[in-house]
Design a protein around this nucleic acid. Structure first.
Length: 876
RNA sequence: GGGCUCUUAGCUCAGUUGGUUCAGAGCACCUGCCUUACAAGCAGGGGGUCGUUGGUUCGAAUCCAACAGGGCCCA
């Protein structure tokens, strides 16, 4: 069989993915095995794969593939969410481009377009995950707007409403003027913006004097209803009870006193605009002030804007400042940096706005969720330092604004039957609402046509927070077999940026609706950044094309590249070089396979060094397996990968294969061959979660396998006891071989030229290891010596001394210098150890083990010094 | 402004309850090799006062304090 010298991912990836799917290896149904469950963090239905998704989903795939190999019933539920703001914005933009304004459409017509859009683009990101190799149970693919998922959301809304946890309130909320909807507090991102502080003089009524206020938002003066000073501020006591005239709109407003005002900030005098600032609103309430809202929903000025009506708020700011200046009201402006809230979705500057919204009361829900993470440890955050962030948020939790002024999403199941704010009924269905409405209103004559459903939809996170329950039907049928089997899920892998949006709320929902945690462990990944540490984003254009990377480096290469530097919770500075490294590794494994499969095998005795090498590698494999299991247990996936990488590349390829490799042109014995194949298969198993395609390809090349023997479902290697002495013996031997290679390099002795080796064996080393030295360092003869020979190059390993006789090539001075250097270092080392040992406080206080170790160090060093001194004496 | 967190080799990071020859790994770099699996490779090599300053201790990269400089969350 002809096998190309380079691994070609394109040739194999599609083939094996199709094979796995055909044999339904990713599909899970409840059975007697232990379940291992992951629910995917649902990406936006219309999104495309980006680097964050790749990292996140590669991690999930590694975990799920390993669990599957461990014989657990592995179930990874994929799906998408409807992303109401983002999707609606895209659909609106598309329609606009086609000359169709949203306002010209009915709600139903708009939703038709949105569904069409979803059908067209909805599957894209999931198809991309398949390219990455993700082994999701695709039969279980869920979408937050699926009928059953939607029904779950509605059921939960009604339930929480009836428990009194959902209420309708007139509050100051975060308004996104671009999306024309409210946002929850979590969706607002505060940014530092360079602005100005404007000092404006308000004339005092009945006086020629004026009062100066400082503001960052002069345009809002059109909504001013008062000017406020601190009651204890003596500079302004003469103003109490006076009235001032607001410039431009010429409105007379009172001067009020409230301790909220900071005497230090600005002029100590504050204008009050209750409609456009949360604190002003509070003061307005306390002082019973009027509320004047000067904005339209898109943040242009309304009729209160007078001659600025229709102008954008920022344009209006400039124009108003100009007018104030012209009319002499503007005293001065100074540069000022302030924090501005922006929309997480659209980036628009948030406008505080008063409106009726639906809120979910959080205190009660938060309590068990807080305990689960911080007290009982039922839910574990990895890395644990996120617990602090979690605690801080949970302790200061505020009610959740769950209504959105959008059409794309689950419409709030509240029906109004009268003109009053409280004239509504909440129910699962219009019929249920009608019945309730008749009761509540005492009017049995109400008809369906008298009811008007709330226009708003629910926040997308109000769907997502149920995800681990609703994907298994656990809301609608709380006792169904699936939810009972798969819930609580095992691991959740997501980014820390949605710890509050999603993770915390899922924990709340888990305890509230199931009385149980939704998952055991939350693995928080880092953010993927570029080499300048900037977050990768579409707007910056610094995110490489995900599928392009897979095309270039292969899915396995990209997976390895991403994982190599992805310590949990640490940001990952993405560098394409890492994918290159991943691809190189794939090629390395591929070529190791080419070597092995090219060997001719026949009946012949097994060389002793091959047997020794195999025994050593078995021990090495076990030691590494132990290490890898420990890394997995701690979710240190990149360390698990690195340990596997070194095992395969260094120990297996560079050492074992060189040990067992038959001389050129000679065949190999059957026992060695069979053993090497077995070890190779063990390696493939460890590698499979990281590099599923390559490993399955090689696995199937090794021999033809039945479907149930595919690597994807092969049993994970078992832990076995191993001989530590083999590892120590090999390590010593490796140093000897290294020493000979160094001398070869320094003296330009080509490898094909055999050398002989003389040993001053102070250590009493096991001579079986000489077999490896002979083969790997091309040594033709090994002899034990009683004293240092002359005319030889030397090196030392522990207290052993090795000589390579090489007449004429030996530089005596150089040899002496090397020995003196080693001697000096070792003496210094011994001195420091002895100093420790002579300190009675150390000997008395330190643990016995530590003291014993120090004694051994001293003895070893002393032995080495003796060797060195002897050699020195001989040479001089 | 409040809280959290980090600073170790050129880069990205490990370093567990203070104690092995503990100052590490990968990459990058330097040198030599087209050796019949692999130049996407092989062999060898250099490189750090562990941010600074104090303290605790027989012993500090590790614990404590202050300072300097990053980052995150919240307001």
């Amino acid at each position: 069989m002809e096998i190309p010298s380079k691994y070609d991912p394109k040739r194999v990836e599609q083939h094996w993915y199709t094979y796995w799917m055909q044999h339904r290896f990713f599909h899970s149904t409840p059975d007697g095995r232990e379940p291992y469950t992951i629910v995917i963090p649902p990406p936006n239905v219309t999104g495309v794969l980006h680097m964050g998704h790749m990292l996140n989903n590669t991690l999930q795939d590694v975990l799920i593939r390993r669990a599957r190999m461990q014989g657990k019933n592995a179930c990874w539920v994929p799906g998408t969410d409807h992303a109401s703001i983002a999707t609606e914005a895209k659909v609106v933009a598309k329609l606009k481009a086609e000359g169709v304004p949203k306002a010209s459409l009915t709600r139903e017509a708009f939703l038709e377009h949105a569904w069409a859009w979803t059908r067209e683009y909805g599957g894209v990101i999931l198809e991309q995950l398949k390219k990455l190799g993700c082994s999701c149970d695709w039969d279980r693919t869920k979408f937050t707007m699926d009928p059953d998922m939607e029904a779950s959301v509605i059921r939960v809304f009604v339930d929480l409403y009836r428990k009194g946890l959902i209420y309708r309130g007139y509050r100051m909320v975060n308004w996104d003027p671009e999306a024309r909807t409210t946002l929850s507090d979590e969706e607002v991102i505060y940014e530092e913006r360079q602005g100005f502080l404007y000092y404006i003089g308000y004339p005092i009524v009945g006086s020629d004097d004026r009062v100066i206020i400082a503001t960052t938002r002069p345009e809002t003066l059109l909504g001013d209803v008062a000017v406020c000073v601190h009651p204890g501020d003596e500079r302004f006591t003469h103003l109490h009870g006076k009235r001032v005239r607001v410039p431009i709109c010429d409105r007379e407003v009172p001067v009020i006193a409230d301790p909220y005002v900071s005497m230090e900030f600005g002029t100590g005098c504050l204008k009050i605009t209750p409609a456009h600032d949360e604190n002003d609103y509070r003061i307005g309430q306390q002082h019973d002030l009027e509320i004047i809202d000067i904005f339209n929903p898109d943040a242009t000025l309304n009729h209160y804007g007078l001659h600025y009506e229709g102008m954008d708020r920022f344009e209006a700011r400039k124009a108003i400042v100009g007018e104030l200046e012209q009319q002499g009201y503007l005293i001065k402006t100074e540069p000022y940096t302030n924090k501005v809230g922006t929309s997480e979705r659209t980036g628009a500057v948030i406008e505080p706005r008063l409106s009726d919204q639906w809120f979910l009361s959080m205190k009660e829900l938060a309590q068990p969720a807080m305990e689960a993470v911080l007290s009982t440890g039922e839910v574990r955050l990895v890395p644990s330092r996120f617990e602090n962030t979690y605690r801080h948020w949970m302790e200061n939790i505020r009610d959740w604004n769950i209504s959105r002024q959008l059409w794309w999403g689950q419409r709030i199941p509240a029906w109004y039957y009268g003109p009053g704010k409280e004239d509504y009924a909440v129910a699962d269905t219009p019929e249920g609402a009608l019945e309730l409405a008749r009761q509540q209103s005492g009017n049995p004559g109400l008809e369906a046509s008298d009811l008007r459903q709330d226009e708003d939809v629910l926040d997308t996170w109000f769907s997502s927070w149920l995800w681990p329950i609703s994907v298994f039907g656990g809301i609608l049928e709380p006792e169904n077999e699936e939810i009972e089997y798969y819930y609580p899920t095992t691991d959740l892998v997501t980014g820390p940026d949605i710890l509050f949006f999603w993770v915390a709320r899922m924990i709340m929902a888990g305890y509230h609706f199931r009385g149980e945690r939704p998952f055991e462990t939350v693995y928080l990944t880092g953010l993927v950044r570029d080499k300048q540490r900037r977050k990768m984003s579409k707007s910056l254009g610094n995110s490489p094309d995900a599928l392009g990377l897979i095309e270039q480096y292969g899915a396995d290469g990209v997976r390895v590249g991403l994982l190599l530097s992805a310590a949990a919770g640490n940001d990952l500075l993405f560098d394409e070089g890492l994918c290159q490294q991943g691809m190189n590794f794939a090629n390395k494994v591929w070529n190791a396979f080419r070597l092995v499969q090219g060997w001719q095998v026949e009946d012949r005795p097994q060389p002793e060094e091959a047997l020794l090498g195999i025994r050593w590698y078995e021990a090495r494999f076990q030691a590494t397996l132990e290490e890898i299991e420990d890394h997995y247990a701690k979710y240190r996936i990149s360390d698990a990968l690195m340990a596997t990488y070194k095992l395969v590349w260094d120990d297996f390829c560079s050492w074992l294969l060189e040990i067992v490799k038959p001389p050129f042109g000679e065949p190999m014995d059957r026992r060695t061959y069979a053993a090497v194949i077995g070890l190779f298969e063990g390696n493939l198993k460890l590698l499979h979660p990281f590099m599923p395609f390559l490993t399955e390809e090689v696995w199937q090349h090794i021999e033809s396998r039945k479907p149930e023997e595919a690597l994807v479902v092969a049993p994970w290697p078992e832990r076995q006891p191993f001989e530590g002495a083999l590892l120590e013996g090999f390590e010593f031997t490796r140093e000897v071989i290294s020493g000979i290679r160094t001398i070869r390099k320094e003296k330009n002795i080509p490898f094909r030229e055999a050398v002989s080796l003389q040993v001053l064996d102070e250590e009493g080393a096991d001579r079986k290891w000489e077999l490896l030295v002979r083969k790997l360092a091309n040594v033709d003869q090994v002899s034990l010596e009683a004293s240092a020979p002359e005319g030889a190059l030397s090196f030392r390993v522990r207290s052993n001394e090795y000589f390579i006789p090489l007449e004429g090539a030996v530089d005596l001075e150089e040899e002496l210098r090397k020995i003196r250097e080693e001697l000096e270092y070792t003496r210094g080392f011994l001195a420091s150890v002895e100093k420790k040992l002579s300190n009675s406080r150390f000997v008395d206080n330190a643990p016995e083990q530590v003291v014993a170790l120090e004694r051994k160090k001293a003895a070893d060093a002393a032995a080495k010094i003796e060797t060195l001194e002897k050699s020195l004496a001989k040479l001089q």
